[in-house]
Design a protein around this nucleic acid. Structure first.
Lengths: 350, 350
DNA sequence: TTTAAAAAATGAACCGGTTCAAAATTCTCG
DNA sequence: CGAGAATTTTGAACCGGTTCATTTTTTAAA
């Protein structure tokens, strides 16, 4: 409106338009943009003026087509609303930005069909590579065997074996950590609210819980009450709590993630119990909310920062030297963050 | 590994490779992909076989280059971790998917410099269009006047005037709703915890609060205690609560968003007050957590669903017929959701 | 002033698809 | 069987940048 847009208001200016206006060749324009030091200052100024005048924006598509590698990185998560994945996305976005890349965020919604559709789309898009938090959790068959083209992929939060790069957190160790903490505090009837059977991460955490009980010389059949839920949200936790309170109440509850823990908390409060006096509560993930919850939540922290940065860097590296690349699997250790939901003496802030 | 990859393991197969293998011309391959009904069944079969054999994935970049419109839509939000924007992103992703598009999610982190960088990048990427939740909230100067190229943009949650398409929610009305509710319940000393001065949304909500007080024939100077915060997170709310409790305690608090409300809740609880008995509490946004909070939170709901779907559809439409397009501004009404944080009689679930 | 070397600019070919006018093939029907 | 119509197939040109061998200009040295 205010800028009269001197010339073409039809289609966005191309490099040839710029070349014509600046009275140089297209090669020179290209050089001005990509190798400014190889072009004479006077010429450069003229070209830059023309670029500004036309509002010329180089077409990235065309650029990639000629061999330049794309600066887009795909990120496929299985739940775009889960705080855990969002924090991860944030870290990844930041890391990736430092090297001039951008993230294309996609949501598989835990659906393997959608997931492979997205992978195909990202391959068609010729993205630089993909960070994939897999929806498919079949252990036997490797579902990522035949990826479209030779799309570089790094699995996120899931160890897919030696055929893939991956960064994951040791979920079994995490489960163990939680239970060891509760045992140390003297709890003997511990409930485990693990998400849906079939989600590997959650199964592993429950497995760790069992191992810890056994290592302490106790019988899981007696001291461990396992409950599975259909989802991994607050409501699911709440229902789990109701279920637990029907039988012999546990004196501690370990939840497969923080959202479940929040739900369990509500269920306990509604039943007139208090945390941690009557029941101790441990979550998993240590999302931001855990620290700020009414009763700050003890939680097994996944090192999201490391997870995200490592994964992003690994992918960029991987996609840089396409061949002669050996897949690498990194497994990070989780860490227990003790707060008041298990220990009243814990500082109010952390 | 299992697939020996007969031919080229060097660079991903191109349309000419397919044509050669199927013994047809490139045009026929293109037709097989895009207009299958115009090619003879026998030929089609041969081409499809070749495509499968080579693992051919059409290069989307090249496709776009020849004029096809991109299927990528940019989404720029100012806080990737904010539940509100994530819920919006989810809705948008879903809507956009239905028409075969994908979302490229970017985080401006409230920084206008980063924001324009992202817009330039999206323009270079030749995305179909951009949904922008603006970081720049200057009212006077229109900061989106000279967008790179003729990138179609729809402003999200912000009315940018007649020069832009936008979908927003009436924040003034929202503020009014909240206060009217509190007045109706008989509260007379109402605090308003509005975020940072300078964030328009928040300023508008506070403005609505003032209007409601005046409309009720009261004096804002007397009945309204306004507090501003430096951020819009839980911690900021908590600090605001501490500040409020130093002076004459209010009997109700209206917060600029739900996160602030959660923080205020913690501050109140820590000071030995209870909600809603001692102080009523109203949030804004009605994020998922509000319903599941320990004391379910009364909140002014932004119709995120509508916001997201409308915005996405408007953008696609806008970007379809580039010219002869008149900018449209839609303003959606907010809605009050009453829960126990203001009214004990509210049902436990909603 | 001449000449060799360095610096700058050029422009056609190319990336990998799509398009479309023209050519080749198949079908219809007198 | 042959003409005309309908259906398929073809392939060169194009999209908008980049590349790089070549040409042109400038600079430095003799």
């Amino acid at each position: 409106m205010s800028t009269p847009d001197t010339a073409t208001s039809k289609s966005p200016a191309g490099i040839r338009d710029v070349a014509a206006l600046a009275q140089v060749s297209t090669g020179t324009v290209s050089n001005t943009i990509n190798r400014p030091d190889t072009v004479h200052p006077r010429t450069r100024a003229a070209v830059e003026k023309a670029i500004a005048e036309l509002g010329f924006v180089p077409n990235q598509q065309a650029r990639v087509l000629t061999g330049a590698s794309s600066n887009v990185i795909g990120l496929v998560v299985l739940d775009i609303e889960s705080p855990f994945y969002m924090e991860a996305a944030h870290v990844i976005e930041r890391t990736v930005r430092e090297s001039g890349h951008v993230v294309m965020l996609c949501n598989s919604e835990g659906d393997t069909t959608r997931e492979s559709g997205l992978l195909a789309m990202l391959a068609a898009q010729r993205v630089r590579g993909v960070l994939l938090a897999p929806a498919s959790l079949d252990e036997d068959a490797d579902p990522y065997k035949d990826l479209p083209g030779d799309l570089p992929v790094v699995l996120l939060d899931y160890n897919g074996g030696p055929e893939h790069c991956s960064i994951s957190v040791d979920n079994v160790a995490g489960g163990r950590l939680a239970i060891e903490h509760l045992l140390q505090l003297g709890h003997t009837r511990i409930a485990v609210v693990g998400g849906p059977t079939g989600l590997r991460q959650f199964a592993d955490r429950a497995q760790g819980a069992r191992e810890a009980i056994i290592a302490a010389g106790m019988d899981p059949e007696v001291s461990l009450i396992e409950v599975s839920t259909s989802g991994i949200g607050i409501q699911d936790g709440r229902r789990a709590a109701e279920l637990l309170l029907e039988g012999d109440s546990p004196d501690a509850v370990f939840c497969g993630n923080d959202m479940l823990a929040f739900g369990v908390y509500r269920g306990l409060i509604d039943a007139g119990l208090s945390v941690p006096e009557d029941v101790a509560l441990v979550g998993y993930d240590d999302i931001d909310f855990a620290r700020d919850w009414v009763v700050p939540l003890t939680s097994v922290r996944q090192p999201i920062d490391k997870l995200g940065t490592r994964a992003a860097r690994l992918l960029i590296e991987h996609s840089a030297r396409e061949d002669s690349h050996t897949h690498r699997q990194e497994v990070l250790p989780p860490e227990l963050v003790v707060r008041r939901s298990t220990d009243l003496r814990a500082p109010a802030q952390h």
